[in-house]
């Protein structure tokens, strides 16, 4: 039997909304595939584009960033807007290095949206699964 492709995804979740939303998904016992491993950051605005690049460089098939809803849910006034703007730049950057920007997903998930978190995970994992393994960089490019 052919082995199914299991994407490896890193998720940066802001402490106040997305991480709490992910916790709520757990508390509500909602199921989603185990392909995503979370990294807790205080704010989505902490996510340095280099983190995203590093993840892809290390072989992640997808990267997820979860923050608080715009306009005004961010615990640190406007970190979510900074992330929003950075995402636009990151998409272009990824395109240039031959990585489909659909492999990078930004979503706003509030602490009360456990269901949304699980759904988004389902969806994103399915999408990355369809996209297949990330093109591996050659040694020299690393």
């Amino acid at each position: 039997m052919k082995k199914v492709f299991e994407p490896r995804i890193v998720a940066f979740l802001c402490n106040w909304c997305a991480y709490s939303g992910a916790d709520l998904a757990g508390v509500s016992r909602l199921k989603y595939p185990p392909n995503v491993v979370p990294i807790r950051v205080m704010c989505s605005g902490r996510v340095d584009p280099q983190f995203v690049l590093e993840a892809f460089r290390e072989g992640a098939d997808g990267v997820f960033i979860g923050g608080c809803h715009t306009p005004s849910d961010c615990h640190y006034v406007n970190g979510n807007f900074k992330t929003y703007k950075r995402k636009i730049v990151m998409d272009r950057m990824l395109e240039q290095i031959g990585i489909n920007p659909r492999r990078l997903r930004l979503e706003w998930v509030s602490a009360s949206e456990g269901k949304k978190f699980a759904e988004v995970m389902d969806e994103f994992i399915a999408e990355v699964r369809k996209l297949g393994p990330v093109p591996r960089m050659k040694e020299g490019e690393r």
């Binding site: 990294i39 205080m42 605005g45 902490r46 983190f51 590093e54 615990h75 970190g79 900074k82 950075r86």
Partner: peptide
């Protein structure tokens, strides 16, 4: 919040106990 650390172009700004190196290691 770490916004400054994410924005710093020279890697001079970081967050205590949430440094670039730490997060790279985690990734």
């Amino acid at each position: 919040c770490g916004s400054c650390a994410a924005a710093c172009p020279s890697g001079a700004m970081t967050l205590k106990n949430g440094t670039q190196e730490q997060i790279f290691d985690m990734i």
